[in-house]
Design a protein around this nucleic acid. Structure first.
Length: 778
DNA sequence: TCTAACGTGCAG
DNA sequence: CTGCACGTTAGA
């Protein structure tokens, strides 16, 4: 109906052509006009460029000076051609410019002047991601249609007109939503719209945008990797294959308790645009779960591991499946929505969008109203069904974390028994390259029995008692899922819970926080479902300083977002199938990360460290990384290769690492030489199971002039069979050495250790803590 | 007027 | 599909 996009585009194009002709005689790239704004851009159809919110964490950051875009900037010595903001500074909630105004009344957003959330919504400017019109919802005349609010982007929706007309947005996340989509390695890259079958006739089968990406087309299944196999060899269901839904990624986060939100007097702009009456995209009913349950699909996996936290994105669910209510009923009273309702488990008012919600009904003009929006209801039913199955399993999984099943899952679904490494066939299925391959001379079959079972080796290593077989990477469609980070609320979390009667709870947030500290991560996830306020409180990064996804078989985009939201200081992704893109995306968004564990990942993934910057990283665990050898170490440790003038920072990207874990790698002196040069702060070094390490290596590390000589305090050379007694002599040169682990070094004798102790006793008293494990006594 | 950088098209 | 280039916009 309304505005023809294509028409506008053509106009813009022609105009820009003219401009280019005038302004740029040599269209080097043939770049057509980058911005397509007609002169009368306040009228409908005009695309409004968005601008920084200036409030989000990213906006408040300073330029890293190290990313791709910083390096391009003139101020960092680059040519300045790319004109992009620093990766670390890419706004997560780009806003409409100040000059934006309503096409109808020509006025700016007026939400600031209003108290009531609903009023706020009605008087805030909303930009349609389809027709680009910016209006006050209140100014719209259409009452019989609903707008679909895009809660991933401030002031963005699919306006009632477009929505009513069944249009689908050409932009998935609405205008202005960049989110580093042009970053190398970004997970957020915009998908080009599918070749427009865009006419209305296709509306029947039209799914919301995100499932329209080509990878979701049926034929894609032909090209997809085979489904993950359960140990029984049966393909496990891949809900993500079926559930390509336009997800509202953080529906939980923001909308879990809309009614509470409504009562909360909040200055959170995201509150305003999510009033109960807004129709949200119900597809997300599955959106989160389908990701989430992937992580939960292998409850048995965890049993093999002492897991601090099963990354149960339960808070991301934002639904009110009956079973979840069961789960929560003990502590809150939650009206139960229909089974595929997607939002709000509100302890007080229940799904605000549900028919019974008083808040919903009171709006005389719910311009934007929750409404089921399944273009294909048949399909959606199927999806819901499948989804529920998966969700049930997720719950089960979450429960299993504490070994306390919440619910018995009568699924006949293939179970996911522990993938014991010794099961060669499984291994073969999962990682053919490991089946026959040996690394570092140690057969994998032996390696995974390594450390703690054979020996109490190593410091702090994640020990694969059974080398878990990291599952195959999720299908590309999962990894590349457009997945955005919901803009974190700009306002600080509320200090107190709002009660039903409008009063506030007596206990302040900080007191709650003290209580939350006693909870496990899983319990926190449960708490996050209680209400909006708890959701925010429980997401406090103080509660999530350590995130452990060790052996989590599938790292999903949702999990990545969850990680970002929590901004952990320590992140363990060991033995996961994280991809390079995911890792790079992640690292770029975790500027405060200090501990990164990638043991057992593939080099393909770990190589993300070569191109990302993690300046605060102190601990890097890359033990048993497949394919990590000398050349790769060189890539990892080398300074950025960009040697253009002005590119001053030629320091190692990992220069601040003081704890480096390289167990089980096929590295030689070449790597050690680099390490001793590039890591001046290196204090703890794990080289156990490195069969190429020998006395000469130790000599290198402790040679005069190297920083490691003085910085090393703990070194692990256990099971390094080429290391001999002679190495002990080299260690005498180390000024700070406190622990030398030579256990299971065949060529190291106890006599030599005792001699070392005797000789050192004059200056530094050592003792044999265990056989060939030397430790400073004081 | 200047700087930052958004959004888009195109080459590879 | 990805990364680059750049016109143009937004804000200071």
């Amino acid at each position: 109906m309304a505005l023809s996009l294509s028409g506008d585009d053509e106009e813009y194009d022609s105009e820009s052509e003219q401009q280019r002709a005038a302004n740029r005689p040599k269209p080097k790239m043939g770049t057509s006009s980058a911005v397509k704004l007609p002169p009368n851009r306040t009228t409908s159809g005009a695309r409004r460029r968005r601008t920084r919110c200036r409030k989000c964490e990213a906006c408040l950051r300073t330029e890293c000076g190290e990313c791709h875009f910083c390096k391009d900037m003139k101020k960092f010595g680059g040519p300045g051609r790319m004109k992009q903001s620093c990766i670390m500074r890419q706004c997560i909630a780009p806003v409409l410019p100040h000059t934006a105004m309503c096409v109808v009344c020509k006025e700016a957003g007026k939400e600031d002047t209003l108290e009531d959330d609903e009023d706020k919504f009605n008087f805030m400017l909303m930009e349609c991601s389809i027709c680009n019109e910016i209006v006050h919802p209140n100014c719209l005349k259409i009452n019989d249609a609903s707008g679909v609010v895009n809660d991933e982007l401030p002031n963005c929706w699919e306006c009632p007109k477009c929505n009513h007309a069944g249009k689908s947005g050409k932009q998935k996340r609405g205008p202005g939503f960049k989110y580093a989509s042009n970053l190398p390695g970004s997970l957020l890259r915009e998908q080009k719209p599918v070749k427009e079958e865009g006419d209305i006739s296709s509306a029947a089968k039209r799914r919301p945008e995100r499932e329209e990406t080509p990878r979701h087309r049926p034929e894609d299944s032909l090209h997809r990797p085979p489904p993950l196999l359960s140990p029984s060899g049966l393909p496990r269901p891949r809900p993500e294959d079926k559930l390509r839904k336009k997800r509202k990624l953080f529906d939980d986060d923001e909308e879990e308790d809309l009614s509470v939100r409504k009562k909360e007097k909040s200055d959170d702009p995201y509150f305003y645009k999510l009033p109960h009456q807004i129709k949200t995209e119900d597809e997300d009913e599955g959106g989160c779960e389908d990701e989430e349950d992937k992580q939960g699909r292998e409850p048995h996996f965890q049993s093999a591991v002492e897991r601090k936290w099963r990354f149960g994105e339960t808070e991301e669910e934002g639904d009110e499946k009956d079973f979840k209510n069961e789960l929560l009923n003990s502590c809150i009273k939650t009206p139960v929505g229909d089974s595929d309702q997607s939002h709000c488990s509100s302890p007080q008012a229940g799904p605000s969008s549900e028919g019974g919600s008083e808040t919903q009904e009171k709006g005389p003009r719910p311009k934007a109203r929750r409404k089921r929006r399944f273009p294909n209801r048949e399909l959606s039913r199927e999806l819901s069904k499948a989804l529920n199955q998966e969700i049930l399993k997720t719950e089960d999984c979450l429960a299993n974390e504490n070994r306390q099943p919440l619910k018995v899952e009568p699924e006949t679904e293939n179970e996911e028994p522990k993938r014991l490494f010794r099961n060669g066939s499984d291994l073969g299925d999962q990682r053919p390259h490991l089946k026959t391959k040996e690394m570092n001379g140690t057969p994998w079959e032996l390696r995974h029995f390594y450390p703690s079972q054979i020996t109490p080796l190593g410091f702090n290593r994640s020990t694969p008692t059974n080398r878990p077989v990291p599952p195959r990477s999720p299908p590309k469609c999962v990894q590349m899922e457009r997945h955005v980070i919901r803009p974190p609320p700009i306002s600080p979390p509320p200090d107190r819970l709002l009660l039903k009667d409008g009063k506030t709870h007596v206990v302040q947030r900080e007191v709650w926080m003290k209580i939350f500290r006693y909870l496990s991560h899983q319990e926190l996830c449960v708490c996050m479902r209680v209400c909006k306020t708890w959701n925010r409180w429980c997401c406090d990064k103080r509660l999530w300083t350590i995130i452990d996804l060790n052996r989590c078989n599938s790292i999903t985009p949702l999990m990545l977002s969850g990680i970002i939201r929590r901004q952990p200081v320590s992140l363990d992704l060991s033995w996961t199938n994280i991809s390079k893109k995911q890792l790079s995306w992640l690292i770029n968004r975790l500027p405060g990360l200090r501990v990164l564990k990638l043991a057992g990942c593939s080099w393909a993934a770990v190589s993300a460290l070569c191109t990302t910057s993690c300046p605060l990283l102190r601990t890097l665990d890359v033990q048993w990384v497949e394919g990590l050898k000398d050349p790769q170490m060189r890539d990892l440790l080398s300074p950025p290769t960009d040697n253009r003038p002005g590119q001053l920072d030629n320091r190692c990207k990992l220069r601040n690492v003081d704890d480096l874990r390289l167990a089980g790698l096929d590295i030689t002196d070449a790597s050690l030489r680099l390490i001793s040069r590039q890591m001046p702060l290196l204090s703890r070094l794990d080289l156990s199971y490195c069969n190429h390490i020998n006395d000469q290596s130790v000599n290198l590390l402790t040679a005069t002039g190297t920083t490691t000589r003085d910085s090393l305090t703990v070194i692990n050379l256990s099971v390094c069979n080429r290391v001999t007694d002679h190495s002990l002599n080299f260690f005498k040169r180390c000024g700070s050495i406190c622990q030398i682990d030579l256990r299971f070094c065949k060529q190291v004798t106890k006599t030599a250790c005792e001699r070392f102790i005797a000789e050192m006793s004059v200056s530094v008293p050592f003792r044999l803590k265990e056989d060939k494990l030397l430790q400073k006594t004081s």
